[in-house]
Protein backbone atom coordinates (compact mmCIF):
# COMPACT_ATOMS: atom_id res chain seq x y z
CA UNK A 1 0.00 0.00 0.00
CA UNK A 2 1.23 3.42 -0.87
CA UNK A 3 1.65 6.15 1.68
CA UNK A 4 -1.33 8.11 0.38
CA UNK A 5 -3.57 5.09 0.80
CA UNK A 6 -2.39 4.50 4.36
CA UNK A 7 -2.90 8.14 5.30
CA UNK A 8 -6.39 8.19 3.76
CA UNK A 9 -7.29 5.07 5.68
CA UNK A 10 -5.78 6.42 8.91
CA UNK A 11 -7.66 9.70 8.57
CA UNK A 12 -10.85 7.82 7.86
CA UNK A 13 -10.49 5.51 10.82
CA UNK A 14 -9.40 8.14 13.35
CA UNK A 15 -11.94 10.70 12.19
CA UNK A 16 -14.55 7.96 11.95
CA UNK A 17 -13.81 6.60 15.42
CA UNK A 18 -14.61 10.00 16.87
CA UNK A 19 -17.49 10.84 14.56
CA UNK A 20 -19.23 7.48 14.63
CA UNK A 21 -18.07 6.45 18.11
CA UNK A 22 -19.38 9.37 20.18
CA UNK A 23 -23.01 8.19 20.38
CA UNK A 24 -21.73 4.77 21.47
CA UNK A 25 -19.72 6.50 24.16
CA UNK A 26 -22.67 8.33 25.68
CA UNK A 27 -25.07 5.41 25.51
CA UNK A 28 -22.52 2.97 26.93
CA UNK A 29 -21.63 5.32 29.79
CA UNK A 30 -25.34 5.58 30.54
CA UNK A 31 -25.75 1.82 30.45
CA UNK A 32 -22.62 1.45 32.58
CA UNK A 33 -24.14 3.61 35.34
CA UNK A 34 -27.44 1.77 35.13
CA UNK A 35 -25.83 -1.67 35.22
CA UNK A 36 -23.50 -0.71 38.04
CA UNK A 37 -26.67 -0.24 40.08
CA UNK A 38 -27.80 -3.76 39.20
CA UNK A 39 -30.35 -3.05 36.48
CA UNK A 40 -30.26 -3.60 32.75
CA UNK A 41 -31.98 -1.04 30.56
CA UNK A 42 -32.50 -2.39 27.07
CA UNK A 43 -34.77 0.57 26.43
CA UNK A 44 -31.76 2.80 25.76
CA UNK A 45 -32.29 2.32 22.02
CA UNK A 46 -35.76 3.83 22.36
CA UNK A 47 -34.39 6.61 24.56
CA UNK A 48 -31.65 7.31 22.02
CA UNK A 49 -34.13 7.66 19.16
CA UNK A 50 -36.46 9.75 21.29
CA UNK A 51 -33.52 11.94 22.34
CA UNK A 52 -32.49 12.37 18.71
CA UNK A 53 -35.99 13.39 17.67
CA UNK A 54 -36.75 15.71 20.61
CA UNK A 55 -33.30 17.32 20.46
CA UNK A 56 -33.69 18.03 16.75
CA UNK A 57 -37.24 19.28 17.16
CA UNK A 58 -36.40 21.63 20.01
CA UNK A 59 -33.28 22.88 18.29
CA UNK A 60 -35.39 23.69 15.24
CA UNK A 61 -38.23 25.28 17.19
CA UNK A 62 -36.07 27.28 19.59
CA UNK A 63 -33.21 28.06 17.24
CA UNK A 64 -30.64 26.95 19.81
CA UNK A 65 -28.98 23.53 19.54
CA UNK A 66 -28.07 23.68 23.23
CA UNK A 67 -31.73 23.90 24.21
CA UNK A 68 -32.27 20.88 21.96
CA UNK A 69 -29.47 19.05 23.75
CA UNK A 70 -30.93 19.87 27.16
CA UNK A 71 -34.33 18.72 26.00
CA UNK A 72 -32.87 15.41 24.74
CA UNK A 73 -31.17 14.89 28.12
CA UNK A 74 -34.39 15.72 29.98
CA UNK A 75 -36.34 13.38 27.73
CA UNK A 76 -33.81 10.64 28.45
CA UNK A 77 -34.00 11.38 32.16
CA UNK A 78 -37.79 11.04 32.17
CA UNK A 79 -37.75 7.79 30.19
CA UNK A 80 -34.97 6.40 32.37
CA UNK A 81 -36.95 7.41 35.43
CA UNK A 82 -39.96 5.56 34.07
CA UNK A 83 -37.84 2.43 33.61
CA UNK A 84 -36.38 2.84 37.11
CA UNK A 85 -39.73 3.35 38.78
CA UNK A 86 -41.59 0.55 37.04
CA UNK A 87 -38.78 -1.96 37.51
CA UNK A 88 -38.82 -1.17 41.23
CA UNK A 89 -42.29 -2.66 41.49
CA UNK A 90 -42.28 -6.27 42.65
CA UNK A 91 -41.86 -9.00 40.03
CA UNK A 92 -41.23 -6.65 37.10
CA UNK A 93 -38.60 -7.99 34.75
CA UNK A 94 -36.22 -5.23 33.70
CA UNK A 95 -35.29 -6.93 30.41
CA UNK A 96 -38.91 -7.30 29.32
CA UNK A 97 -39.76 -3.74 30.31
CA UNK A 98 -36.64 -2.50 28.56
CA UNK A 99 -37.75 -4.08 25.29
CA UNK A 100 -41.16 -2.49 25.77
CA UNK A 101 -39.54 0.89 26.34
CA UNK A 102 -37.39 0.45 23.24
CA UNK A 103 -40.46 -0.14 21.07
CA UNK A 104 -42.37 2.67 22.74
CA UNK A 105 -39.50 5.13 22.33
CA UNK A 106 -38.86 4.43 18.66
CA UNK A 107 -42.57 4.32 17.81
CA UNK A 108 -43.31 7.56 19.65
CA UNK A 109 -40.29 9.28 18.11
CA UNK A 110 -41.35 8.25 14.59
CA UNK A 111 -44.86 9.47 15.25
CA UNK A 112 -43.94 12.79 16.83
CA UNK A 113 -40.99 13.35 14.51
CA UNK A 114 -42.99 13.31 11.27
CA UNK A 115 -42.91 17.06 10.88
CA UNK A 116 -39.19 17.40 11.55
CA UNK A 117 -37.72 15.24 8.80
CA UNK A 118 -37.53 18.03 6.27
CA UNK A 119 -36.60 21.17 8.25
CA UNK A 120 -32.96 21.93 8.98
CA UNK A 121 -32.25 22.50 12.67
CA UNK A 122 -29.26 24.50 13.96
CA UNK A 123 -26.32 22.19 14.71
CA UNK A 124 -24.02 21.99 17.72
CA UNK A 125 -20.71 23.75 17.02
CA UNK A 126 -17.48 21.91 16.24
CA UNK A 127 -14.06 22.62 17.76
CA UNK A 128 -11.19 22.82 15.31
CA UNK A 129 -8.43 21.00 17.13
CA UNK A 130 -6.36 20.59 14.01
CA UNK A 131 -6.23 24.21 12.85
CA UNK A 132 -2.41 24.17 12.98
CA UNK A 133 -2.19 21.29 10.47
CA UNK A 134 -1.83 22.19 6.81
CA UNK A 135 -3.56 19.07 5.43
CA UNK A 136 -7.27 19.94 5.14
CA UNK A 137 -8.18 16.29 5.53
CA UNK A 138 -6.58 16.06 8.98
CA UNK A 139 -8.14 19.39 9.87
CA UNK A 140 -11.50 17.98 8.99
CA UNK A 141 -10.90 14.73 10.88
CA UNK A 142 -9.84 16.72 13.93
CA UNK A 143 -12.71 19.16 13.69
CA UNK A 144 -14.31 17.53 16.68
CA UNK A 145 -17.75 18.14 17.95
CA UNK A 146 -18.11 19.74 21.38
CA UNK A 147 -19.84 16.63 22.67
CA UNK A 148 -16.85 14.35 22.20
CA UNK A 149 -14.55 16.11 24.72
CA UNK A 150 -17.51 16.33 27.08
CA UNK A 151 -17.94 12.58 26.73
CA UNK A 152 -14.25 11.97 27.42
CA UNK A 153 -14.40 14.20 30.50
CA UNK A 154 -17.51 12.40 31.70
CA UNK A 155 -15.88 9.01 31.37
CA UNK A 156 -12.86 10.22 33.38
CA UNK A 157 -15.18 11.73 35.95
CA UNK A 158 -17.19 8.53 36.20
CA UNK A 159 -14.03 6.46 36.49
CA UNK A 160 -12.96 8.55 39.47
CA UNK A 161 -16.49 8.89 40.87
CA UNK A 162 -17.25 5.17 40.90
CA UNK A 163 -13.91 4.34 42.43
CA UNK A 164 -13.28 7.10 44.96
CA UNK A 165 -16.50 8.73 46.07
CA UNK A 166 -19.17 7.76 48.53
CA UNK A 167 -22.06 7.87 46.03
CA UNK A 168 -19.93 5.73 43.70
CA UNK A 169 -19.39 3.20 46.45
CA UNK A 170 -23.10 3.21 47.25
CA UNK A 171 -23.96 2.56 43.62
CA UNK A 172 -21.47 -0.30 43.31
CA UNK A 173 -22.66 -1.86 46.54
CA UNK A 174 -26.31 -1.69 45.54
CA UNK A 175 -25.41 -3.33 42.26
CA UNK A 176 -23.15 -5.93 43.78
CA UNK A 177 -25.00 -7.11 46.82
CA UNK A 178 -28.43 -5.85 47.62
CA UNK A 179 -28.54 -7.44 51.07
CA UNK A 180 -25.36 -5.78 52.27
CA UNK A 181 -26.43 -2.42 50.88
CA UNK A 182 -29.71 -2.71 52.75
CA UNK A 183 -27.94 -3.76 55.95
CA UNK A 184 -25.75 -0.68 55.68
CA UNK A 185 -28.84 1.46 55.35
CA UNK A 186 -28.63 2.45 51.67
CA UNK A 187 -31.98 3.00 49.97
CA UNK A 188 -31.57 0.34 47.28
CA UNK A 189 -34.59 1.21 45.15
CA UNK A 190 -33.85 4.95 45.20
CA UNK A 191 -30.23 4.46 44.18
CA UNK A 192 -31.28 2.24 41.29
CA UNK A 193 -33.97 4.64 40.13
CA UNK A 194 -31.47 7.51 40.13
CA UNK A 195 -28.88 5.41 38.29
CA UNK A 196 -31.39 4.38 35.62
CA UNK A 197 -32.65 7.94 35.19
CA UNK A 198 -29.12 9.33 34.82
CA UNK A 199 -28.28 6.52 32.42
CA UNK A 200 -31.33 7.51 30.37
CA UNK A 201 -30.16 11.12 30.25
CA UNK A 202 -26.80 9.96 28.84
CA UNK A 203 -28.57 7.95 26.14
CA UNK A 204 -30.72 10.98 25.31
CA UNK A 205 -27.55 13.03 24.76
CA UNK A 206 -26.17 10.21 22.58
CA UNK A 207 -29.30 10.52 20.45
CA UNK A 208 -28.95 14.29 20.25
CA UNK A 209 -25.41 13.77 18.96
CA UNK A 210 -26.84 11.80 16.02
CA UNK A 211 -29.39 14.43 15.08
CA UNK A 212 -27.49 17.60 16.04
CA UNK A 213 -23.87 16.72 15.17
CA UNK A 214 -23.31 13.72 13.00
CA UNK A 215 -24.87 12.94 10.59
CA UNK A 216 -26.82 15.92 11.88
CA UNK A 217 -30.32 15.34 10.59
CA UNK A 218 -33.44 13.65 11.94
CA UNK A 219 -34.77 10.71 10.01
CA UNK A 220 -36.33 7.44 10.93
CA UNK A 221 -33.34 5.40 9.86
CA UNK A 222 -31.00 7.50 11.96
CA UNK A 223 -30.16 4.92 14.60
CA UNK A 224 -28.68 1.68 13.38
CA UNK A 225 -28.95 -0.08 16.72
CA UNK A 226 -26.40 1.98 18.64
CA UNK A 227 -28.56 1.73 21.77
CA UNK A 228 -28.66 -2.05 21.68
CA UNK A 229 -25.00 -2.44 20.79
CA UNK A 230 -24.09 -0.27 23.76
CA UNK A 231 -25.28 -3.08 26.04
CA UNK A 232 -22.78 -5.45 24.46
CA UNK A 233 -20.19 -2.72 24.59
CA UNK A 234 -20.58 -2.32 28.35
CA UNK A 235 -19.97 -6.03 28.84
CA UNK A 236 -16.92 -5.78 26.61
CA UNK A 237 -15.72 -2.81 28.67
CA UNK A 238 -16.18 -4.87 31.84
CA UNK A 239 -18.36 -2.15 33.37
CA UNK A 240 -15.46 0.34 33.44
CA UNK A 241 -16.09 3.89 32.16
CA UNK A 242 -12.63 4.15 30.61
CA UNK A 243 -13.21 0.77 28.99
CA UNK A 244 -16.42 2.21 27.54
CA UNK A 245 -14.41 5.03 26.01
CA UNK A 246 -11.99 2.63 24.35
CA UNK A 247 -14.76 0.29 23.22
CA UNK A 248 -16.81 3.16 21.77
CA UNK A 249 -13.82 4.33 19.74
CA UNK A 250 -13.23 0.79 18.51
CA UNK A 251 -16.86 0.45 17.46
CA UNK A 252 -16.74 3.85 15.81
CA UNK A 253 -13.69 2.86 13.81
CA UNK A 254 -15.38 -0.42 12.86
CA UNK A 255 -18.38 1.55 11.63
CA UNK A 256 -16.13 3.76 9.51
CA UNK A 257 -14.27 0.78 8.08
CA UNK A 258 -16.71 -0.04 5.25
CA UNK A 259 -16.79 3.40 3.57
CA UNK A 260 -13.09 4.04 4.26
CA UNK A 261 -11.99 0.79 2.60
CA UNK A 262 -14.18 1.44 -0.42
CA UNK A 263 -12.77 4.93 -0.79
CA UNK A 264 -9.26 3.54 -1.12
CA UNK A 265 -10.42 1.03 -3.69
CA UNK A 266 -10.99 -2.13 -1.66
CA UNK A 267 -14.52 -2.58 -2.81
CA UNK A 268 -15.18 -6.28 -2.81
CA UNK A 269 -16.83 -7.60 0.30
CA UNK A 270 -18.20 -4.23 1.35
CA UNK A 271 -21.25 -5.89 2.88
CA UNK A 272 -18.90 -7.72 5.20
CA UNK A 273 -17.03 -4.56 6.16
CA UNK A 274 -20.27 -2.65 6.61
CA UNK A 275 -21.36 -5.35 9.01
CA UNK A 276 -18.12 -5.00 11.00
CA UNK A 277 -19.67 -3.39 14.10
CA UNK A 278 -22.32 -6.10 14.32
CA UNK A 279 -19.86 -8.89 13.71
CA UNK A 280 -17.65 -7.32 16.37
CA UNK A 281 -20.58 -7.31 18.81
CA UNK A 282 -21.14 -11.02 18.22
CA UNK A 283 -17.46 -11.84 18.46
CA UNK A 284 -17.24 -9.97 21.75
CA UNK A 285 -20.27 -11.76 23.16
CA UNK A 286 -18.79 -15.12 22.25
CA UNK A 287 -15.32 -14.24 23.47
CA UNK A 288 -16.59 -12.94 26.79
CA UNK A 289 -18.91 -15.88 27.38
CA UNK A 290 -17.80 -18.01 30.32
CA UNK A 291 -20.36 -20.67 31.16
CA UNK A 292 -18.85 -21.57 34.51
CA UNK A 293 -17.82 -18.25 35.95
CA UNK A 294 -18.93 -14.64 35.96
CA UNK A 295 -16.75 -11.99 34.42
CA UNK A 296 -14.54 -9.83 36.57
CA UNK A 297 -16.28 -6.59 37.39
CA UNK A 298 -19.79 -7.92 36.81
CA UNK A 299 -22.28 -6.30 39.16
CA UNK A 300 -23.58 -9.21 41.25
CA UNK A 301 -27.22 -8.19 41.17
CA UNK A 302 -27.40 -7.96 37.39
CA UNK A 303 -30.26 -10.01 35.99
CA UNK A 304 -28.17 -10.68 32.87
CA UNK A 305 -25.56 -12.63 34.77
CA UNK A 306 -27.26 -13.77 37.93
Amino acid sequence: MSEAVVSTLAIGMIGGAIRVGTPYLFVSLGECITEKGGRVNLGLEGILVMGAMSGYALSYLSGSPWIGLLCAAAMGLCMGLLHGLICSLPRVNDIAFGIGLMLLGTGLAFFLGKGFIQPQAPQLPALSLGSFIADPRWRSALSINALFPIGVLLSLLLHWGLRSTRPGLALRLVGDHEGTARALGYPVATVRIIATAVGGAFAGVGGAYLSLCYPGSWSEGLSSGQGIMAVALVIFARWRPLGCLAAAMLFGAAGALGPALQSIGISSGYHLFNAAPYALTLAIMIASCRPRQTLGGTPGELSLTR
Binding site: Y214, P215, G221, A256, Q262, S263
Partner: peptide
Protein backbone atom coordinates in the same frame (compact mmCIF):
# COMPACT_ATOMS: atom_id res chain seq x y z
CA UNK B 1 -15.63 8.42 -10.22
CA UNK B 2 -15.12 6.67 -6.91
CA UNK B 3 -18.24 4.75 -5.92
CA UNK B 4 -19.10 3.73 -2.35
CA UNK B 5 -21.96 1.33 -1.68
CA UNK B 6 -23.67 1.74 1.68
CA UNK B 7 -25.68 -1.48 1.44
CA UNK B 8 -29.17 -0.06 1.97
CA UNK B 9 -31.51 2.73 0.88
CA UNK B 10 -31.39 4.73 4.08
CA UNK B 11 -28.19 4.59 6.15
CA UNK B 12 -27.62 8.14 7.38
CA UNK B 13 -24.44 7.54 9.42
CA UNK B 14 -22.83 5.47 6.66
CA UNK B 15 -23.81 7.99 3.97
CA UNK B 16 -22.19 10.77 6.00
CA UNK B 17 -19.13 8.60 6.59
CA UNK B 18 -18.93 7.74 2.89
CA UNK B 19 -19.11 11.42 1.95
CA UNK B 20 -16.37 12.23 4.44
CA UNK B 21 -14.08 9.50 3.21
CA UNK B 22 -14.61 10.64 -0.39
CA UNK B 23 -13.72 14.19 0.62
CA UNK B 24 -10.65 12.85 2.47
CA UNK B 25 -9.57 11.18 -0.73
Amino acid sequence: TQVIFTGDWSMPVREAEATNSLADK
